[in-house]
Design a protein around this nucleic acid. Structure first.
Lengths: 270, 270
DNA sequence: CCCTTAAATTCCATTATGTGGAAACATGAA
DNA sequence: TTCATGTTTCCACATAATGGAATTTAAGGG
């Protein structure tokens, strides 16, 4: 058995299949909207199509994934939902931030995103739609992308201590190409974001939308960000500033909410 | 490689590892409270301990599971939660039933459970606590057990067409031993439940609690049940009848809610 | 405390299992 | 139609997963 793709086997023992399976699952959670095709998954994981096909079939058999026969795309399946129920987080950031998202959506009329770090990825943890008729919904709840891709995911990086953030940019270097980015570029943006206190999306990947995000957490609590996204015309420079200020105020509010909540439980994840 | 346990390889191709992994994950979701130990998982899956150990380690590496170092038990990990987010169900039974559970909890003062079918298992989809100080909380959200074990899971069976229900009892025959049950016994209880319209737990597995459940769904919508659980003293025969009537009324209410909702989407799961 | 038992973990020779190349088969575009 | 792209099946091969045995660690019991 040879390796086709770039990633050398990062882990030790006889568990290649489990690591490959996990990589596939994460990759499927990265797919927007419709789901992921076999060839996309093959390219993204560096596994040959026949292997991916066989694995996907087994995962569908187990209902970990579901296959749309019309489009031949794969998406997260019922068993994943059910297993997720059993993994209720200790610190339910989604619940805690729900009223905050609501408030921002009402105040701005635009879409609001809560993004957190998960390993090398940014994860869309929650979303609220604003009242403005043209919805900017580039991300679904549960979607993943490399840290640094887009305003929300860049702000998550900015929530981390600088050395850690930069290390993650390096770690993700190989993945940025798919988003028309480079590690250098992300590094520069990250530094700029630290200066400014907020991020603005470059519109490099999704042209018609623009986003503003403010980081929070990163030490006791997970690195995260609040992000407002709208069509570009609705986010001209002067409004960006106003939205950023609003987000900063709400981040402060979350800070006090978290201080109340978080009894430093030794066990486990957020 | 030989097979130690009872189950012969149910699936075809070169995907043993994926099926074993899925079995492990399901088994961990079956564990109450603290989590599952390696030996329990080994026994439950029929895999030798060294194999289970290696797989669990890999799953923990991937954060699909988390290990409590103190008790050396395994439970669902953060990545499962995150992947579950991406698998939002089309028909969100949990959301739809939320107000119903709330109402029942307030009316009875006892714990209320929403249980659904997932393959050969019953799955605790949601729970609400009543005001009575002694809480009957034998199940956590996300917990699994074989269909037929306990009032709620027996009522789920009763929601299915009789032949299908009986077939599932046969399919689960080998698993009932762990719950001090037999397929015959479950079959009898199931028949009785169909007569009566509701189930009452025998208290065979959890002695100090008693439960009453009423089935619903099973055709267009997934087989499910509403269940009220309390300490045995609070569920004497005459109160059981009154609670069962209340549950029947609420089941009817769900029926109309579902009729409004469910646009028969061809794709996928509930 | 020490002794016994059970469970968890590591090790490693063996081979069943997963692999990936190649070829067949679909699908959709021009 | 033909061509190009993506999906699926097939199968000989060698790697990766396996499980028995040995070792280590923890949990009781007296």
């Amino acid at each position: 058995m040879e390796f086709k793709g770039a990633e050398a086997p990062r882990y030790r023992d006889g568990a290649q299949s489990i690591h490959r399976t996990a990589a596939l699952l994460r990759e499927i959670a990265a797919a927007r909207g419709g789901g992921a095709s076999l060839s996309k998954l093959s390219a993204a994981t560096g596994l040959v199509p026949s292997t991916v096909h066989r694995m996907l079939q087994a995962l569908v058999d187990e209902e970990l994934l579901a296959k749309d026969p019309a489009t031949r795309t794969y998406r997260a399946g019922p068993l994943l939902y059910e297993l997720g129920l059993a993994a209720a987080p200790r610190l339910d950031l989604r619940k805690i931030c729900a009223p905050v998202l609501q408030r921002i959506a009402e105040a701005t009329g635009d879409s609001v995103y809560l993004t957190v770090r998960s390993g090398d990825d940014a994860l869309t943890l929650d979303r609220r739609e604003g009242s403005f008729p043209i919805k900017a919904l580039p991300q679904e709840i549960g979607n993943r992308r490399p840290l640094g891709v887009g305003a929300g995911a860049l702000a998550v990086l900015a929530a981390l201590p600088a050395p850690e953030g930069e290390a993650l940019v390096i770690a993700n270097a190989a993945r940025y190409g798919r988003y028309r980015l480079t590690a250098e570029r992300v590094g520069t943006e990250l530094a700029a974001a630290r200066e400014r206190g907020h991020t603005v999306s470059t519109g490099r990947f999704v042209a018609r939308y623009r986003g503003v995000a403010v980081p929070f957490g990163g030490l006791e609590t997970p690195a995260a960000s609040l992000c407002v996204i709208a069509i570009s015309e609705r986010l001209k420079p002067e409004r960006i500033e106003r939205v950023a200020e609003l987000l900063h105020r709400e981040v402060a509010a979350i800070g006090t909410l978290l201080a109340d909540q978080a009894p430093p439980e030794p066990t486990g994840h957020w």
